[in-house]
Design a protein around this nucleic acid. Structure first.
Lengths: 217, 217
DNA sequence: GCATGAATTAACAGTATTGTTAAACAAGTC
DNA sequence: GACTTGTTTAACAATACTGTTAATTCATGC
């Protein structure tokens, strides 16, 4: 059995590498993040990175596995089967998504980078992603169609509602770096901006579906 | 005066480099596009690239200058002062933007890459961008506020309407590579999808402002 | 033809990248 | 104290990238 000291030493280096990797991948994407800089930030020689994780790709998968697992959990949690109205159900899901994105502000940017520049790295998630999406569709599509056919909400397809949500939610967080760097907003201003977008996204969706503000029931 | 042959030769190489550069920058962004590959695609040695354009940065500026100039033109054209309703005015601007993006499907991705990974390259456009945006705000903000105060449309700030438009429009084209590669849609399916998104974005905006479908005047 | 000047090539410098490896080190076990 | 095991370092290989430069080609004007 390993001694505490040995164990701690190993754990420290290994975890330092993992934390630096996650931070750098989230910042720079896959291709632009270098093992050299990861090692520099973790305070170890770059050979250690290969000793513990073999290749850059392996460590990237560890980072992405963790983050995507959390995202998937969050999306699944949004498919509650509580006995509430369609809107309450949908709103709950969107709010969970927005709260997840708020806690993982750099993740969408990373996913975009990878999908754009190294799509082969996402193949290992394709099956589970398709499963999740078809689960999502199965859960909400029927309910939406009922809501539309019964005349309780305006006509819209599941596909378009899905993209309304995705484009508004995801791209808000993709544009975050621009808020900081280009528009030179400080963190507090960014937070306030995000809160306003959060409310507006919900508001837009309710107007789209029901033609009026949520509060004016 | 240069002979035709000399002129042609020069023009051919120079233009071949420029075309290959634009294509590769649009595909890979600034940092991941290499002068080596630009030269390879243009069918010339990579020294020629430096001979005609000195540095990678210089050629990138040439590409971006051209594209941003076109974008700015398009946005300015969207600020028509025709004597039409606020909605017709706004809708015209959004349609022009969407049509521009449709003709420059990779530009948003490039801008995102640069803003994220090489923001210093955008400094030279900061002043003109701010001018454009303040012109845009000056043009529409007052009209929107009138529309809201008069009760002709639902309450909304210019800022939120702006972001509703930007996030839905831009990110639709940012997600295009995913449609092709991840969702494995062919070009025809992508075109049909874009058309549906085009209509839906206009529809969403009209619901957001007026609480009903555009056609149900 | 030949001199001129632009266009082109091939080779090089300098730097950075990922990954490997042999040797050194540390610490506990027998 | 010698042995074993896991950890760390420094040096190296192989490749790629940006940019420069000296030498060469080439069309053209004289």
């Amino acid at each position: 059995m390993n001694s505490d000291k040995l164990n701690n030493k190993k754990t420290n280096t290994e975890e330092a590498i993992m934390e630096a990797s996650e931070a750098l991948f989230l910042e720079k994407g896959y291709l632009l993040a270098t093992t050299t800089e990861i090692a520099r930030r973790a305070g170890v020689t770059h050979a250690m990175l290969h000793y513990y994780y073999r290749t850059k790709e392996q460590i990237f998968f560890k980072v992405l596995d963790k983050n995507l697992h959390e995202l998937f959990q969050s999306v699944r949690a949004g498919m509650s089967s509580e006995e509430v109205s369609f809107w309450e159900n949908l709103k709950g899901g969107v709010m969970l998504l927005l709260e997840f994105l708020d806690q993982h502000r750099q993740l969408v940017g990373l996913l975009y980078d990878v999908a754009r520049h190294s799509p082969e790295l996402l193949e290992r998630y394709q099956e589970s992603t398709l499963n999740l999406l078809s689960g999502l569709a199965g859960h909400h599509k029927v309910l939406l169609d009922q809501e539309v056919r019964s005349g309780r909400c305006n006509p819209i397809t599941f596909e378009q509602l899905f993209w309304d949500i995705v484009t508004m939610s995801f791209s808000t967080y993709m544009f975050l770096p621009l808020m900081n760097r280009v528009a030179k907003m400080d963190d507090l201003e960014v937070d306030r901006m995000l809160k306003r977008r959060y409310d507006e996204i919900i508001t837009v969706l309710h107007y789209r579906l029901y033609g009026k503000h949520e509060s004016s029931n």
